[in-house]
Simulated assay, not measured.
Amino acid sequence: MRNMRWLPLTIVGSLLLLSGCATSTSVKNTQPWHYLPMAVPLQSTTQQEVQLARIDQILLRDDIAEQDRAQIYYERGLINDSLGLRDLARLDFNRSLSYNPAQPDVFNILGVYFTQSGLYDAAYEAFDSTLELNETHQYAERNRGIALYYGGRYDLAVRDLLKHYSDNENDSYRALWLYLAEREKEGSEQATQALRDRYQASDKQDWGWQLARLYLNDISEQAFFNEVMNSSMDNLQLAERLCEGYFYLAKRYQAQGDLGSAVALYKLAMAGNVYDFVEHRYSMLELSRIAQQLSQSPSS
């Protein structure tokens, strides 16, 4: 079992001593997690700060039409969301809906927030509202599939995610989320073979197929992270790719029963502050679920 005692594992305000709670699943450690690459955490830009200041000034005016005010609140919500200010963002999204309730994009992002909070029924309703307003809204289709996955409704999750994948079979992330749902529904062996078939059928242009290769054991963890470091053009791209890489690697270790490594990697996925990536959004949800799992299991 990997020695994880170097890492203080604080989840939802509680110290989890995983050295005695992780399962005995044997997984070779290619390198200690604290030696893995890191990006400089993303910070707010001058442009974002100026945009927020301008929006605040515009909203003080009393001659703005309700449709315009709804759009402005939505745009400010997106900026707050990208900065990790999700309570402020949610408040802006709700204000936007109060001025214009027929906004599929707003229902979609609120559905993501409900999923992050584990409020799956509310999430399903929000995504259903999005698709009622815009039946071709593919992000809502994907996000509903993810919510169904986290809600344990794997048959329906596979249905949504398979439809989403079929709309663009060269998109690696569609294949990855479909794989995660199929793994729960059909088992690891069948899901892995399906992922391999989809990888082989793709044009392999999307960088995310490197993540699929990691799941398929076609590339080692060390080679994967070397690829991340060598191919990233700047710190932004490095932060984004590491966020993705750490999240999907955490999902793999979690499926193998190595919760200590999964926790460490989920925390690394969040370390770059890539707030608007689904991998960052759902890392905290994964940590909360692991904390709940451990709290309900007998002490070892």
Rank of each mutant, 00 (worst) to 15 (best):
A201P: 12
S202I: 04
S202M: 06
S202D: 12
S202Y: 08
D203L: 08
K204D: 12
K204Q: 15
Q205W: 03
Q205N: 12
D206T: 02
D206K: 00
W207C: 14
G208W: 04
G208R: 06
W209G: 02
Q210W: 06
L211V: 00
L211H: 07
A212W: 04
A212E: 04
L214I: 02
L214K: 12
L214D: 00
L216N: 03
L216Y: 06
D218A: 09
I219E: 08
S220D: 13
S220H: 13
S220I: 13
S220Q: 13
E221H: 06
Q222S: 13
Q222A: 13
Q222P: 00
A223C: 02
A223Q: 08
A223N: 14
A223F: 05
A223Y: 00
A223H: 09
F224A: 01
F224V: 08
F225S: 10
F225A: 07
F225I: 07
N226W: 07
N226K: 12
E227I: 08
E227M: 11
V228L: 02
M229C: 08
M229R: 07
N230K: 13
N230F: 08
S231H: 02
S231E: 05
S231G: 05
S232V: 11
S232W: 13
M233A: 15
M233F: 05
M233W: 00
D234P: 00
D234E: 11
N235R: 06
N235D: 10
L236R: 14
L236C: 05
Q237C: 01
A239W: 08
A239G: 11
A239D: 00
R241W: 13
L242Y: 10
L242M: 05
C243A: 13
C243G: 00
C243H: 06
E244T: 01
E244K: 05
G245C: 06
G245N: 00
Y246Q: 14
Y246V: 09
Y246L: 09
Y248D: 07
Y248G: 02
L249H: 14
A250N: 13
A250R: 14
A250T: 11
K251M: 14
R252P: 04
R252H: 08
Y253N: 05
Y253P: 00
Q254M: 02
Q254R: 15
A255M: 10
Q256G: 03
G257K: 02
G257S: 01
L259R: 09
G260N: 10
G260V: 04
S261G: 14
S261K: 14
A262R: 00
A264Y: 15
L265N: 12
L265V: 09
L268M: 12
L268W: 05
L268C: 03
L268N: 02
L268V: 00
A269R: 01
A269N: 08
M270R: 10
M270H: 04
A271V: 01
G272I: 03
N273C: 08
N273V: 03
V274D: 07
V274R: 11
V274Q: 11
V274E: 09
Y275P: 01
Y275E: 07
D276E: 12
D276W: 08
F277C: 03
E279L: 04
E279D: 09
E279P: 08
R281S: 02
R281Y: 01
Y282D: 01
Y282H: 01
